[in-house]
Nucleic acid binder design. Sequence first.
DNA 1: TATTGTAGGTAACAAATGTTACTCATTTCT
DNA 2: AGAAATGAGTAACATTTGTTACCTACAATA
Lengths: 210, 210
Amino acid sequence: MNNSIVSNLNFEPDLLKEIDEVGELKNYKDGDVIMDYGKYLKIIPIVTKGTIKILKMDENGRELLLYYLSSNDTCSMAYSCCMEAKKSEIRAVAEGDVELITIPNTKLDSWHSKYPSWRNYIMRSFNERFLELLKSIESIAFHKLDDRLVSYLKEKHRLLGSNVIKVSHYQIADEMATSRVVISRLLKQLENDGKILLYRNEIKLLTSFI
Amino acid sequence: MNNSIVSNLNFEPDLLKEIDEVGELKNYKDGDVIMDYGKYLKIIPIVTKGTIKILKMDENGRELLLYYLSSNDTCSMAYSCCMEAKKSEIRAVAEGDVELITIPNTKLDSWHSKYPSWRNYIMRSFNERFLELLKSIESIAFHKLDDRLVSYLKEKHRLLGSNVIKVSHYQIADEMATSRVVISRLLKQLENDGKILLYRNEIKLLTSFI
DNA sequence: TATTGTAGGTAACAAATGTTACTCATTTCT
DNA sequence: AGAAATGAGTAACATTTGTTACCTACAATA
């Protein structure tokens, strides 16, 4: 297996060998649902390529983007699901092409006591996810929609490395748990302010925006 | 040290002995700030008595109640602060009398590899805190203030075990990151609906509420 | 007792967000 | 080509939440 990516996590050689033995490489395409609400999980994923978005849904079907996972990340939710055999509270969707290595949950406990690097990796992941959620809460609780929209666009820009973001107003509204009309209104405002340009399925960030 | 409370966490006898040796018992009174924004932490706490509320503040000083810690809980934020020497992003305040045991961070890594029960405890704690944050996000993102206020009162009722909640409108507004006038308005609405009775510094939940 | 501070009630208004309804343009499908 | 689906613009309006301002009641205390 090609774990050249995983290898820069500073895992012990023995651990890398074990990952090579039991890990499975999986591929997903844009929009594929990698994990879903209510599902039981028997593996934990380590992302090697691409980006995964993590969503939470309410009773009425509205969704909210919590955070992204990208290379070398793993999902804490997955970890705790595995350890406690609980249902997932979140949905994971591939954003573009995604490659990941799945680790069967039978290995987790023994790796945890055997490999300090693994322990560190999991702990750091928990911590990072925790902080992402805090950021998310801060954003929702303390900032108005226009600010949140700007953050959203900047995050996309950071992830894609491009000034052109291919996304529909509907999608944004979905991920921010609001309605399309509201997003269109705010985007139009940004366009009028000379920060962005709007096209069908596409938003161009101008230099004054970034 | 009296660790009769901690003993029902199913820790190994050896671990209990170590906790007895290095843990320190601390006491706090209502309103005491146990942990604060930006502080570095060198211990992690295990709550043995009382309730601690965990708050997050934004740049403008508005606060938001994230969740409560009570007996046998520990704080994941503390854990990750200790492991990565990071500043705290949250504030912890005693709600009533609080007793807790502090564990010096020098012990964490070795306990983590030596004691499966400790590992479990920390993992379960991370998971619980993670779910609390998710609940918090769900509440803010998907529910209106009146619903959130009802949840707030029900949570207080659950924690206190009493129908009489001693709290001012100001306090509630603070913890829900909104203003006093708004809370007064919504409480009055609940009173008009026959769900609660309002007094100075006191809210009485009627049977139709619970 | 007079004074001061705190808790709470309430009206009037402002701002932010959500909803409905209709339009047009572009793409996709048949 | 024609029909249907999708993406987006926009107005008008409703609701929710935030803000300001002022009032009353109660409690603490000098």
